[in-house]
Design a protein around this nucleic acid. Structure first.
Length: 149
DNA sequence: GCCAACGTTGGC
DNA sequence: GCCAACGTTGGC
């Protein structure tokens, strides 16, 4: 799951009560479908820092809710407001996430690209712009091994 | 349904 | 700041 650290970083999540926050503001239908239909409490996800000095994987989160309507879309004052989404017919979804672990260092995009085992990683495919992306079990293990102390 | 124009993402 | 790639919009 991607976030620009200038907007919301892994340290921001670490400071939240219970290290938990709602992952909202996703405004892409493919990503929405993953939040709404596929993610389950207990699933894990990497926290990826994008559009910053050192793009890469910063740590691990746990999903702690099912997909739920993104209430930011109902708030006229929110940057994520969407008049096309209503409580009766929500268009956008969020999940609650809890920080599990912040890596001692960011596993950089360059480093990810250098791994043969990650050749198929969705994040690395050309033109990818999704803010929520799948990771296979083998890819997960590979990235975790890069974060080993 | 097609497609050009435009906006956004995100690495560099 | 640049640019490639993609999504969305809207005219037809």
């Amino acid at each position: 799951m991607k976030s620009e650290p200038s907007v919301f970083s892994i340290d921001d999540l670490a400071r939240r009560p219970g290290r938990t926050d709602s992952w909202d503001g996703v405004r892409n239908y493919q990503a929405r479908n993953m939040l709404r239909d596929e993610m389950q409490p207990g699933d894990c996800a990497f926290f990826y820092h994008s559009s910053c000095e050192e793009p890469g994987v910063a740590g691990v989160m746990k999903i702690v809710s099912r997909g739920q309507p993104d209430t930011a879309a109902f708030d006229r004052r929110s940057d994520y407001y969407d008049s096309g989404s209503t409580p009766a017919a929500p268009r956008w979804y969020s999940v609650d996430v809890q920080l599990q672990r912040k890596f001692k260092r960011v596993i950089t995009l360059t480093e990810l690209r250098a791994q043969r085992a990650l050749a198929g990683l969705a994040l690395l495919q050309r033109g990818n712009r999704l803010s929520v992306l799948p990771v296979s079990s083998a890819e997960w293990k590979c990235i975790l091994s890069l974060a080993a102390d």
